[in-house]
């Protein structure tokens, strides 16, 4: 399971203030902390409060600051292509682009960008019409992204399809469709594209968020989920992932499997 730490995001108050005050310390803190909690990538998002014209410079600063503090690649998260490209330009190592949808005009921007910078890319199984409800419609959109990546020479191992989980309190019927989508994505191509998910979406404004998050993550792993953008500061979540890795025969069992999962 590739865990992408969600915490460096301008939606959080401390990061928002760090951006406003140009104070690198909170960014450094969360980069290091998520690294220690065995994140494989750091999600970097300026948040919506930064003006559109300022987003590239802020993204550049966030990526540099995070990578100075922790030896991790970044998952550059923005709806602004200029901000994403600014982040890719200063990024060390193999970045991840978060994200494109299945709209052709977006794929035409982001997929060549992934090829140019040798970055992985997250493809959301949705388009301007919104989030599809059925697994079949999600799969059809995922296939559009698969074909566009193939045409642009982005290998399937670098494509992460996100079937789009919605909050279970208001869109409860989507959960089973997401699980079915995860199963079917593996049949789209050989080698298969990878899969990812914005895990915390599943529990927006619900009670017992941690419980809902980790339960859905484990169910998704059983359906073939390869990666998740998640709260790696949640130790019970990490324990559950470690146990799921064992049960899915991804890691060889040992009595200290919780510890070895965290060792890097």
């Amino acid at each position: 399971m590739i865990l992408i730490g969600e915490r460096i995001n301008g939606m959080f108050k401390d990061i928002r203030e760090a951006i406003q005050n140009k104070d690198p310390e909170p960014v450094r803190y969360w980069a290091r902390r998520q690294y220690e909690k065995c994140a494989a990538y750091l999600d970097i998002n300026t948040g919506p409060t930064v003006e559109k014209d300022d987003q590239p410079a802020v993204m550049e600063w966030l990526v540099k600051t995070a990578q100075e503090a922790a030896p991790l690649p970044c998952c550059i998260d923005s709806t602004n292509p200029d901000a994403i490209e600014a982040g890719l330009k200063v990024h060390q190592g193999k970045a991840m682009i978060n994200s494109t949808t299945a709209d052709q005009w977006k794929m035409d921007i982001y997929i060549p960008m992934a090829a140019k910078y040798n970055a992985a890319i997250i493809g959301l199984a949705m388009n301007e019409k919104g989030v599809p409800k059925s697994a079949a419609d999600r799969i059809a959109l995922a296939m559009e992204i698969v074909v566009n990546c193939d045409m642009n020479g982005v290998p399937m191992e670098d494509l992460y399809i996100d079937p789009l989980m919605l909050p279970c309190n208001v869109a409860q019927e989507h959960g089973v469709e997401v699980l079915e989508t995860l199963r079917q994505i593996k049949t789209l191509a050989d080698p298969a594209p990878r899969t990812t998910m914005g895990l915390s979406n599943s529990s927006q404004r619900c009670t017992n968020r941690h419980l809902i998050n980790r339960t859905f993550l484990i169910m998704s792993m059983a359906c073939g989920l390869d990666s998740a953008i998640a709260d790696v500061d949640d130790d019970e979540l990490l324990d559950a992932v470690a146990a799921a890795n064992i049960l899915l025969n991804k890691e060889i069992y040992c009595d200290s499997f919780l510890k070895t999962f965290r060792a890097r």
């Binding site: 296939m143 698969v146 789209l188 191509a189």
Partner: peptide
């Protein structure tokens, strides 16, 4: 083993 959608689409 069945063919994948991508393999078929290319043909």
């Amino acid at each position: 083993m069945g063919l994948t959608g991508l393999e078929i689409f290319k043909q």
